[in-house]
Computed example of a mutant assay.
Amino acid sequence: MSKEVAVPEQRDRMVAGAADMLRRRGYNATSVRELAKHTGAPLGSTYHYFPGGKAQLAAEAVRLADGLIARTLTRELAAGPIAGLRAFVATWRGIVLDSDFQAGCPVLAVAVEEHPDLDAEPRHAAAAAFARWTDLLAAALREHGATIEDAARTAALVVAAIEGSVAVCRAQRAIDPLDRIADALEAAVRAVLPAAPA
């Protein structure tokens, strides 16, 4: 019984470790060997669980990050678009500060790197993550009265601006860019929602 439980736990630990390495170092600087060392897993078991190698592992790490953000958004958007936006910002604010500006978004890390060996699977996972976050935000905006076009445009703005500001925060080793973007995005979200009755 304990052996059956250990298998998924070890595999999950490797995926989480890959997500952590991607958000800190990017795709090109993350190797399967270093990942095995980082998670304390034997190198052979890494290839056992991920026969597709680095590309498969990176794609699964991106899907893990996607799922975590999507669950946070889904939960917080139930209270409205502003609550969802604030939760999205708070998540990235926490990641940047808790890592002392060493970590960003593993989805962005995979999406922006050019490398001849970068398999389509990680890129597709990154594209799907950004699309899902945008769709969740857009749906909440529509449900609260935004037009279809305003909802789509504003949701895309939120995801792109926050992802970009996280990168700026890391480069400047300051959280101010994210905080300023958060204020501007909140104003943008409010602008596309119907005014509350007086």
Rank of each mutant, 00 (worst) to 15 (best):
Q172R: 15
L178H: 00
G164Y: 06
T134H: 11
A174W: 07
A171L: 15
E143Y: 07
I162Y: 09
A151E: 08
L136W: 05
V159N: 06
G164N: 06
S165I: 10
E149D: 13
V166L: 01
A160Y: 06
D135C: 00
E163P: 05
D176A: 14
L178N: 00
D150M: 10
E143N: 12
A146P: 09
T147I: 04
R142F: 01
A155P: 01
L137Q: 02
Q172E: 15
D135M: 11
A167S: 14
A138T: 04
H144F: 02
A161C: 13
D176P: 11
T147P: 04
L136F: 01
A161G: 13
L137V: 00
A174S: 15
V168F: 07
A160E: 12
A156C: 08
R173W: 03
I162N: 09
V168E: 13
V166C: 10
A156D: 14
T154L: 00
S165M: 14
E143I: 09
L136N: 01
L178M: 05
V168P: 05
D135K: 14
L141C: 03
L157R: 11
C169N: 08
G145T: 10
T134K: 14
L137Y: 03
P177C: 07
L157D: 11
C169A: 10
L178W: 00
A138C: 06
I175S: 07
D135H: 13
L136S: 08
D176E: 14
A156R: 13
I175N: 09
I175V: 14
I148W: 08
R170D: 01
S165T: 15
A155D: 03
R153S: 12
A155C: 04
V159G: 07
A139N: 11
A174T: 10
V159D: 07
A174L: 05
A138L: 10
I148L: 12
L178V: 08
T147C: 06
R170V: 01
Q172H: 13
A146I: 07
P177H: 03
A155V: 01
V158K: 04
A161P: 01
A151C: 06
A161N: 12
A171R: 15
A138H: 05
R173K: 14
V168H: 02
L137K: 02
D150F: 09
E163M: 09
T134V: 03
I162K: 11
I175T: 09
V158T: 03
A151G: 06
I162E: 10
A139I: 09
I148R: 12
D135V: 01
L141I: 02
L178T: 03
Q172C: 12
C169F: 05
L157F: 01
A155Y: 02
T147V: 10
G164F: 02
V158R: 07
A140K: 07
D135E: 15
A155H: 05
E143L: 04
D135G: 13
H144V: 00
V168T: 15
A174N: 15
L178E: 09
I175A: 07
G164T: 01
V166I: 12
T154Y: 00
L136Y: 03
A152T: 10
I148D: 13
A156P: 04
S165Y: 07
D176Y: 08
Q172V: 10
A152S: 13
